[in-house]
Design a protein around this nucleic acid. Structure first.
Ligand code: DCP
Ligand code: MG
Length: 678
DNA sequence: GCGGATCAC
DNA sequence: TATGGTGATCCGC
């Protein structure tokens, strides 16, 4: 790791440099947006034209200037890394090559080709739903969203380069005929429920991700019915179409990471099966661009490409020595596993939300009276959302986006847990006050550190928790798991050792997406426990070689999917009591959850979320039943409270992290520790 | 515990 | 005219 002379900069990195004068002649080429990255339905678009239009429409704006600032920062990091890279000696490289080779062997040993995973993703979901309600939109370019921002666009619009996350006014420039339709979440949730009923036929414990996608372990169905995965995929897609009138695409592979990639291959209305065969997987992955992997986003792609010349998954292995030299072990493991086509194959665990927030964008202002009003509204919205789920927390974070698009967050951790709008507002005001005067275009409030959360408490594995109850009751992966974190520190020790400008290098870390983010709100909502004080976590003992972390989106979904589907209804709604006491008293084994958001965890009856009244009645029924039992069996609280369940969950999380860590130090199953950070 | 950042939908 | 909202996690402090 000593930095010395011999330069070993790899040639492909040089290939990335642009020719002289290019930027001056075609400035739009240097404005990197996400709009030109591969996306279904955009294969034939004239990317150059789109890039040019986006550039022309954005140029000079505050938004644009901020993007330029961020890009310059990343570029500098890349330059620094390249220098570090060039300074590696042959000895350094030889050393890291050994480390990498050893790691790759370990990862390979963890490969599990015994499961068959299917990832299903609806086609242009919001847009497709809108077209169902208004058939006259059929065949015309249309987008869901506003002139400021689009949620998605149908395939006709995509031919023009119009896509999700693009401002509507730019989309209209690309496609003057574009029809705008406002978003209507109720509709999307309704149709999402319908699709999930179909998914449940093939895997009752499917992992729901966002509203429009899910992972199914179809190993058993294929075996029991003695049919090929391809037929299951066909049948499932036909079923979804029959029930909803919507088309979807599916991907089948030995693990979730690859299944997710596969579902995108023949989208829309198509499917792709990657057989459970090592050679097939290796071939598939060899030419696969790393950007297709869940968790590898724009920045990560730029860095890997710019510093090491890595474009495909296969190159992750070719450059494994560099990867091991520059990244934390967890990150290196993740990258190498991507090169091997490994991904999670186990059943995820359930996780519960760790924060709840509300934010709004408005025209920039520095009018303090106005800002206070916005803050008040947010406090009320947030408080209402928290009460719906019986949450209270002790950390409040204020988020501000300045008129120049810079984002700032300011947080305070209180002694007591709060949930009322008054309490939230009181503390939020103080945080805001300290930033004044300031011109902002967005204000957000977030509450975390919930009552019931335990930071590092240890749980007694022998204890019977709701979690266990549920698990045994067969919830399993339905309730998905969270993503564990994945973050990597991009820059690794090597960098640190080399003493790079800490300002830049210091932060190259990025998190791995794999874990976590994938989940969407929706999921969350469905996953959260309503009207309950605590939440519990359903957990399965998954000990796949591949640990939860690394699998990218899959994991993200998987891990993230909080389950989108577990909705628990709980007994008392403890308003803000003291954590432990309240928790302990409130829940029991009888906690009821809506698995996958439609099936009762206690009796199996199916009731979609839209059946609000029916659900309430149903939960009341179980509640009454439970209370009755409680009375009869006097004390006997063998089962921990719901909150406790949550605690356990949290605990578990930390535990798993520790495990990973220790593995790291020792020499253990690799994947398990992907993403573990030093 | 705080702040900044990435990623996903 | 105009570039979203929600959630998770990480690392370095
Ligand atoms: N930045 C984004 C991306 C997506 N979505 C919403 C709208 C999409 O309809 C839905 C599903 O996201 P997908 O990435 O699956 O995109 P689509 O389903 O619209 O298109 P497709 O899956 O066919 O590519 O999530 C959003 O609000 N904001
Ligand atoms: Mg989709």
């Amino acid at each position: 790791m000593i930095v010395k002379g011999a330069r070993v900069l790899d040639g492909s990195a040089n290939a990335m440099m642009k020719g002289k004068g290019t930027e001056d002649d075609r400035p739009w080429q240097s404005y990197h947006t996400v709009y030109t990255t591969a996306k279904a339905g955009m294969e034939l678009v004239d990317k150059e034209k789109v890039q040019r239009v986006v550039y022309e429409m954005s140029k000079g704006s505050k938004y644009f200037q901020n993007e330029e600032r961020k890009e310059a920062f990343i570029k500098q990091k890349i330059d620094n890394l390249r220098i570090q890279c060039a300074n590696l000696t042959q000895e350094d490289l030889a050393h890291y090559q050994k480390v990498a080779d050893r790691r790759i062997v370990e990862l390979e040993a963890s490969r599990d080709l015994s499961r068959i995973w299917l990832h299903v993703d609806m086609d242009a979901f919001y847009a497709a739903v809108e077209t169902l309600s208004n058939p006259t939109l059929k065949g015309k370019p249309m987008a869901v969203g506003s002139m400021s921002m689009l949620s998605t666009a149908n395939y006709e619009a995509r031919k023009f380069g119009v896509r999700a996350a693009m401002p509507g006014f730019i989309a209209r420039k690309l496609c003057p005929e574009l029809i705008f339709v406002p978003t209507d979440f109720k509709k999307y949730t309704y149709y999402s429920d319908l699709t999930r009923k179909v998914f449940g036929r093939y895997d009752p414990n499917f992992i729901a991700g966002s509203l429009d996608e899910a992972y199914l372990d179809i190993t058993e169905v294929c075996r029991e019915r003695n049919v090929k995965s391809e037929e299951i995929a066909q049948e499932l897609r036909a079923g979804v179409y029959e029930e909803t009138g919507l088309t979807c695409s599916a991907g089948v592979a030995p693990n979730r990471l690859l299944a997710k990639v596969c579902s995108d291959i023949n989208k829309p209305n198509g499917q792709y099966v990657l057989p459970n065969d090592r050679m097939a997987v290796m071939t598939f992955v060899s030419s696969l661009p790393i950007r297709k992997i869940g968790g590898i986003g724009k920045v990560t792609e730029h860095i890997l490409k710019g510093v090491f010349g890595i474009n495909t998954c296969e190159q992750m292995l070719e450059k494994s020595s560099y990867i091991c030299a520059f990244f934390s072990q967890s990150t290196a493991d993740f990258f190498c596993s991507v090169g091997l086509g490994l991904g999670q194959t186990d059943s995820p665990q359930v996780r519960f939300r760790k924060s709840i927030s509300s934010e709004r964008t408005f025209s920039a202002t520095k009018d303090e009276v106005l800002l206070h009003k916005k803050l008040e509204e947010l406090a009320e919205m947030l408080s209402a959302d928290m009460q719906k789920e019986g949450l209270s927390g002790r950390t409040l974070t204020l988020k501000l986006k300045t008129a120049s698009f810079e984002v700032r967050t300011r947080a305070v951790t209180l002694q007591k847990y709060i949930s009322s709008s008054e309490d939230i507002l009181k503390h939020a005001k103080k945080l805001l006050q300290a930033e004044l005067p300031i011109s902002v275009r967005l204000i957000g409030l977030r509450v975390s550190q919930f009552n019931g959360d335990k930071c590092s408490a240890k749980s007694d594995p022998t204890q019977k928790t709701i979690t266990n109850f549920i698990t045994s009751g067969d919830v399993n992966r339905n309730c998905s798991s969270f993503p564990d974190v994945a973050d990597h520190d991009f820059v690794s020790n090597a960098e640190t050792d080399m003493s790079i400008d800490s300002r830049q290098t210091g932060q190259l870390d990025w998190r791995d997406p794999f874990d976590g983010n994938y989940l969407s709100d929706v999921d969350y909502q469905s996953c959260t426990v309503q009207k309950s004080d605590g939440v519990e976590e359903v957990q399965t003992s998954s000990n796949d070689a591949t640990s939860s972390h690394y699998s990218g989106l899959t994991e993200v979904l998987g891990s993230t999917s909080y389950l989108g589907q577990v909705e628990g209804i709980n007994v008392k709604n403890g308003s803000n009591l003291l954590e432990d006491e309240r928790l302990d008293s409130c829940c029991q084994e009888k906690t009821m959850l809506w698995l996958n958001d439609y099936k009762c965890s206690l009796c199996g009856i199916e009731l979609p979320p839209s059946f609000v009244e029916e659900r309430l009645e149903h939960s009341d029924f179980h509640l009454a039943e439970k209370l009755q039992k409680e009375e009869s069996s006097i004390h006997q609280k063998s089962v921990p409270s719901q909150s406790k369940g949550q605690k356990d969950g949290v605990t578990r999380q930390s535990k798993s992290k520790k495990q990973k860590l220790s593995q790291k130090e020792g020499s253990y199953t690799p994947i398990d520790y992907f993403f573990v950070k030093k």
